[in-house]
Design a binder for these strands. Structure first.
Length: 690
DNA sequence: GTTAGGG
DNA sequence: CCCTAAC
């Protein structure tokens, strides 16, 4: 009876929760679990957590009245008190974490003293929930007992979809990334998911229904990411791979159920928006330093600890920030990234975006290194023979471009501390070891066995087409201590230089397609000359505590997609250009089909609607993109097949394109497009194509 | 914020 | 894809 009461209470409290943004769908999913098959897990969790709390209680002097309240649970007094607690706890964990963990909180937060600790535990728990893959050592934190359970449920939850039954799925981040990677390159991946998309076209309400009742585990992750702010993401950094693994393709390409896109308040920052912000920032640079005061959270960590490792504090900070809800979300707009360019010798605020989308969509990330003025000499003796050992190609790298860094630092932090942070971040990025990837004409050369000659890198003329990428050494990710939160940052480096014996592992060449774990850099210790070269700005020696105020320094891998895009090899083109072009993402046939269908139904001139209808969850596709694609599609359909390039679009689709184009051209889609027309369109199209 | 169209 | 004018 008591139990029932408690449960009821708990459930009702759920509905009262007002978690800002994305978390909703997330919670929905989790709640579903609770109701259906998650009961046991939840209870297990509770038990585990309770046990853990008790253990911790010994040292924290927190009383365990949890036993006592069973008897009074039903009383108004207790109830009210509880609700307060709940509220408090809610604030603590409303980051959109699993409802399970929140449940736990409710059950175990009888003591206010426990709140703090609980919060800590819960945060860890949440983190672990999302990790699944990462080592669970959890650095001996209180979550030790709890995480496994959560992990299990979470894992099973979404596991069913992405990669069922793959043992390695849970074994390592690296594996996860690989899997993602494979999927990313597997056209089938999309094909599998597409049916859903196609189906949705038949029902305008589908999206809505999806939102109302997410059915795929993917959605949970989908929403999860958007939820997190940069700061949050940084906290989740090491789990990024996991996210990717679970949802990247589906989330990105398929129409998973994201409910936020329509919401202005929580619209996944589109690139457009990002650019806008970026532009804004460019003009305002550091003025937009976030005000973190209201975000401050009680720190459970000793000062000296913070001083010792300033970055650790970030975790706490982020945990706290996650509680900020909307304000936090809004505030993220003020978070900026900065990039360090050796050419300038300084750093410049470059962009502010931190779209979850980006994090999800990132294909390539890293640090861009540009090799300017690469010089290549082709020995005269170089013959056509691929085995010529005498021929040499010489490269020289003049500069590297460091990838964007995400820095979240309080206004009152000193410039010196900022410098130090930047330096540490950069060094940390580099210290973890990098792999070099070679790009030719923007395409990655995966076969290490190919010779330069074969690759076309033996002649000067082709040197401009060579690019290099620095890939994180994934091995490090796996061994990262839970607390250190310092996943290696990915560097996309673009140098015109190429080392013949670059240690690129062909098998892992796909790494770039997996998002790198977002990481907070810590303890950059290895600083070699080369690294220092990256920053010409002198860095004042600061006392360790000078960093005390540093909230976070995070390399933001997710932005990588854009930031990492290999810098144009052509030195003359735009080397100093801060804003880099988005990486090209050719539309797949499935996407084209979705687009065509949407146009057939909606007509042209309603690109926003088309976006929401057919690409709502493809964050990397803006309606402008769709419009442009349609434009090219129409053009493609008009030209001869011989003139077409890229992935061939089925003639059937092109026919539909022409038909739809013709129809809507005539019917002024923009004005009165409606359901009335739809039937006609389809009809006309059918007639024309048959 | 969207559209439309040139680049 | 980007950029912008126009709405």
């Amino acid at each position: 009876m008591v139990m029932k009461k408690r449960l009821d209470n708990r459930f009702s409290s759920f509905s009262d929760w007002t978690v800002p943004r994305g978390p909703r769908s997330l919670r929905r999913v989790h709640r579903k679990n609770d109701f259906e098959d998650g009961q046991i897990c939840a209870i297990e969790l509770l038990a585990s957590l309770a046990g853990k709390l008790l253990q911790d209680g010994e040292s924290t002097a927190c009383s365990n009245t949890s036993d006592g309240d069973h008897s009074v649970i039903g009383t108004n007094v207790v109830k009210e008190e509880q609700s307060n607690e709940e509220r408090a706890f809610k604030v603590e964990c409303c980051d959109g974490g699993s409802s399970q963990s929140c449940d736990l909180g409710l059950e175990n937060t009888d003591q206010k003293q426990n709140l703090k600790k609980l919060q800590y535990v819960d945060n860890d728990t949440v983190l672990d929930c999302t990790s699944v893959v990462v080592n669970s050592n959890s650095s001996g934190e209180a979550c030790g007992d709890v995480t496994p359970v959560i992990r299990k449920t979470e894992f099973e939850d979404y596991r069913a979809k992405p990669e069922e039954g793959s043992p390695e799925f849970v074994e390592s981040t690296e594996t996860g990334m690989k899997i993602v990677n494979e999927e990313a390159h597997d056209a089938k991946g999309f094909g599998i998911g597409f049916p859903n998309m196609a189906d949705s076209h038949n029902s305008k309400d589908l999206n809505k229904s999806h939102r109302k009742s997410p059915t795929s585990a993917n959605s949970s992750f989908k929403t999860k990411l958007p939820l997190s702010t940069n700061a949050i993401r940084s906290s989740f950094s090491r789990y990024r791979n996991y996210f990717k693994l679970a949802s990247r393709d589906e989330d990105e390409k398929f129409r998973s159920n994201k409910s936020t896109i329509h919401s202005n308040s929580f619209r996944p920052p589109s690139r457009i928006a990002g650019r806008r912000i970026r532009k804004l920032l460019n003009s305002k640079h550091w003025k937009a330093a976030p005000k973190l005061k209201d975000c401050e959270v009680p720190r459970s960590e000793p000062i000296d600890e913070e001083a010792r490792n300033p970055f650790r504090k970030r975790k706490l900070y982020f945990n706290g920030e996650r509680c900020q809800g909307d304000s936090l979300y809004k505030r993220r707009r003020f978070v900026y990234r900065s990039s360090i360019m050796n050419s300038d010798g300084g750093m410049s605020s470059e962009s502010v975006t931190n779209s979850p989308e980006k994090s999800v969509n990132v294909d390539k990330s890293g640090l861009a290194a540009i090799l300017h003025g690469a010089s290549v000499s082709t020995p005269s003796g170089q013959q056509a023979s691929f085995h010529s050992k005498d021929a040499h190609v010489k490269f020289s790298i003049r500069s590297f471009k460091v990838p964007e860094l995400f820095i979240d630092i309080p206004e009152n932090a000193t410039v010196g501390s900022l410098k130090k942070i930047v330096l540490e971040a950069v060094t940390a990025i580099l210290k973890d070891g990098l792999r070099v990837g070679v790009l030719v004409h923007g395409n990655k050369v995966r076969d290490d066995n190919r010779t330069l000659l074969q690759t076309g890198l033996s002649c000067k003329d082709n040197l401009d087409t060579v690019g290099f990428t620095l890939e994180p050494n994934l091995v490090h990710n796996i061994t990262l201590p839970l607390c250190s939160e310092d996943p290696p940052q990915i560097l996309a480096c673009d140098m015109t230089e190429l080392l013949p014996s670059s240690p690129v592992n062909p098998s892992s060449s796909g790494i770039l397609d997996a998002a790198l774990p977002n990481t907070i850099l810590t303890n950059p210790q290895n600083q070699d000359e080369n690294r220092h070269e990256l920053i010409t700005t002198s860095i004042d020696k600061l006392p360790d505590n000078s960093l005390q105020d540093c909230k976070a320094l995070v390399p933001v891998p997710d932005m990588t997609m854009e930031a990492l895009a290999v810098v144009p090899l052509n030195p003359k083109s735009k080397r100093s250009e801060a804003v880099q072009r988005r990486t090209r993402r050719p539309f797949s046939v499935s996407e084209v089909e979705a687009l065509v269908q949407a146009i057939e139904e909606l007509g042209t001139g309603r690109w926003r609607d088309v976006k929401f209808r057919a690409f709502e969850n493809a964050d990397h596709r803006t309606y402008v993109d769709l419009k442009d694609k349609w434009k090219t599609l129409v053009h493609t359909a008009k030209i001869s097949p011989q003139q077409r390039r890229g992935e061939p679009v089925p003639q059937e689709l092109l026919d539909r394109v022409l038909a739809a184009h013709a129809y809507w051209s005539q019917h002024q889609a923009k004005q009165h497009s409606g359901k009335l027309h739809q039937a006609g369109v389809v009809k006309a199209i059918e007639g024309s194509s048959s």
